[in-house]
Write a protein that binds this DNA or RNA. Structure first.
Lengths: 194, 194
DNA sequence: TTATCCATGTAAGAAGTTACATGATTGA
DNA sequence: TCAATCATGTAACTTCTTACATGGATAA
């Protein structure tokens, strides 16, 4: 058996899973899969070319996808991948495994925890930036027509909207908590590690 | 210069930053830092012993923390670390760098996107599980007394509550979207939008 | 003419997890 | 007696990102 493809193994999802999933809605090249993954979905799982291309190669080795090379007029050749029966089965099997818990990594929240160490005007800037990011994300999500999406995607889209809306509202309503005075004690000892 | 400690470098936050931050509220051993990081804060950034211990070693090499070995009665020895002036300056410098965007990795959401491939009763189970996780998280967060926390932590605590509440409500209100019928057959190529 | 899109891939490295090794003490 | 808590650390491994290499076509 090809390593990393044990049936029913307790491995977590990775870029391979994402690629298989992307191929359920139609054959695609690595480049196109990246595009698909950049849809509304991207907020919950990302992948770069550097992980997608090797993943596709390994999926092909394992017989979970097939590949056809296509020549195009005025564009580079591309390799179009298609899900096989066992690929589909593998995806379903993986989705049926116990799911890992959500992981959030927010540098913004870390900065907020230590906001008292920063100049208040800098904190205010961070908040403004973040509000803008929320607004952009919300606009982007609102521009999607849910009725055109299959239920799963509609569900995830709505979830994203709900979360961002709640986050934005909280931020606007409670920013004062982190925009107050900076810690006075100034330990200016800059004996830099350079 | 010790590698990985360039001043003003565009590096993202890592476990070193977290350790420095944890030490702003008092000296601590690696073990105790892990504990601190497991507070309300953990939802936005995690770290394991396997990353904390090496991080502390490197911070010490760079002069950002100092270390005192302590013997204890009935317990193993421990190494208590303390922030130095340059450690504090380094932390502030790092928090002042442009912040990386939030990263979420949710296997649950991936499963929801492809829920039509799974048996409806399995999807229902996943939803139930997830609601329970939300409830547990909410209970845990509600048990914290915000008045005892410094503003930064209070802010982050409230943010967590707002997000989980919104997530829970959305889930309860829209679960029907993903609990409907399973896809019966491999559908004839309906190229769905992403 | 400059940038962006198309398109694939590799190599180096960052960053972290898990499992292991060790071992006394304490509480159920 | 069994598990958990306290406590540090290493090694192997996984996973992914970034940067690089390549290069034609097209749009501003």
């Amino acid at each position: 058996m090809i390593p990393g493809f044990g049936r029913g193994s307790a491995k977590t999802m990775d870029v391979k899973t994402l690629c298989l999933g992307a191929l359920t809605t139609g054959d695609a090249s690595g480049y196109e899969i990246k595009k698909k993954l950049e849809g509304s979905f991207r907020r919950f799982y990302e992948a770069s070319f550097g992980s997608i291309y090797p993943a596709l190669g390994r999926l092909q080795d394992a017989g979970l996808v097939t590949c056809v090379e296509m020549t195009q007029a005025g564009k580079p050749d591309k390799k179009v991948y298609a899900l096989t029966g066992s690929g589909r089965a593998y995806l379903i099997d993986e989705l049926s495994q116990p799911l890992g818990s959500d992981r959030i990594r927010s540098e913004f929240m870390v900065a907020m925890v230590y906001s008292h160490l920063l100049p208040p005007e800098h904190v205010a800037n961070l908040i403004e930036e973040r509000l803008q990011i929320y607004d952009e994300s919300l606009t982007e999500l609102q521009d999607c027509d849910p009725d055109q999406l299959p239920p799963g995607r509609r569900f995830v889209l709505g979830y994203g909207l709900a979360i961002y809306q709640a986050g934005r509202e909280y931020l606007a309503a409670h920013r004062h908590l982190v925009e107050t005075e900076r810690e006075t004690e100034a330990p200016a000892a800059v004996e830099a590690a350079d």
